[in-house]
Simulated assay, not measured.
Amino acid sequence: MSIPRSSYDPRRVCLNLSNLNLGRHRRTIGIYLAGGLFALANWTFLDAAILSAHAHSPYNEPQIPPPVHVGFLDWVPGICSLLGMIIINLIDKDRVQGNEGYGESGAVWRARLWLFIGFAFMAGGLAGSVTVLVLKYVVHAYTEQYTYYGYANVSQNVALMLSAIVLWMSQSISTEYEYTLSI
């Protein structure tokens, strides 16, 4: 697939997906999609945590406890991704783009630094969830019932990252009712 020459900008590194034609409600659709991804992410991990809390030993051997539970270590990657999502979506998009009108010259630099920190938190959360999956669940060769806890942790972090990206992109889209006033 190639880009038509009329819409090609040699300075652009990535494609601009905000030009997707979803009608006049594209901002609303994006915000609801991001909320759905956020809810799905947390529901998936909470499902695994609740299953872990109610796990019991096999009925024919009541003295053997379940081999693994969801502990605090499993919650840390999700908390990091959630903090990263909050940091990313609290940043003013105009400052990151470097639009004029902000008093300090270092405002753009600081906004970009905080954006990097937010994405670093999210990447660290995703890397941490994969690490927990491998070291806690896969290496010990637990059954599928117990490895689900690790897979739910990874899917939570992936969905949180996707939710943050969709929300960032949908908040950057202007609506037809939005007016830009500048003096």
Score class of each variant (00 low, 15 high):
residue 145 Q to W: 10
residue 153 N to S: 15
residue 75 W to T: 05
residue 153 N to G: 15
residue 102 Y to M: 04
residue 111 A to N: 07
residue 101 G to V: 07
residue 117 I to H: 03
residue 76 V to Y: 15
residue 137 Y to T: 03
residue 62 P to Y: 00
residue 134 V to C: 06
residue 157 N to M: 10
residue 84 G to Q: 10
residue 129 S to G: 14
residue 134 V to Q: 05
residue 73 L to C: 07
residue 127 A to Y: 04
residue 150 G to D: 11
residue 135 L to T: 10
residue 81 S to G: 13
residue 110 R to I: 14
residue 154 V to N: 07
residue 157 N to L: 01
residue 152 A to M: 01
residue 141 A to T: 06
residue 58 P to L: 12
residue 72 F to C: 05
residue 107 A to D: 14
residue 102 Y to W: 14
residue 79 I to G: 06
residue 96 V to I: 14
residue 156 Q to A: 09
residue 95 R to K: 14
residue 92 D to P: 00
residue 119 F to R: 06
residue 112 R to Y: 10
residue 128 G to D: 12
residue 121 F to D: 00
residue 139 V to D: 11
residue 133 L to T: 09
residue 71 G to Q: 09
residue 152 A to Y: 02
residue 73 L to I: 13
residue 106 G to A: 15
residue 130 V to E: 04
residue 153 N to F: 12
residue 132 V to A: 15
residue 57 S to I: 00
residue 92 D to Q: 02
residue 93 K to E: 03
residue 103 G to W: 07
residue 111 A to M: 07
residue 131 T to G: 13
residue 79 I to Y: 13
residue 81 S to Y: 03
residue 136 K to T: 13
residue 148 Y to F: 15
residue 96 V to R: 12
residue 80 C to L: 15
residue 66 P to G: 08
residue 108 V to Y: 05
residue 63 Q to V: 03
residue 132 V to D: 15
residue 57 S to F: 01
residue 121 F to G: 00
residue 76 V to R: 11
residue 137 Y to R: 05
residue 130 V to L: 15
residue 74 D to V: 05
residue 139 V to C: 03
residue 148 Y to C: 00
residue 115 L to D: 03
residue 62 P to K: 00
residue 84 G to S: 08
residue 141 A to K: 10
residue 135 L to Q: 09
residue 128 G to K: 12
residue 148 Y to M: 05
residue 62 P to E: 00
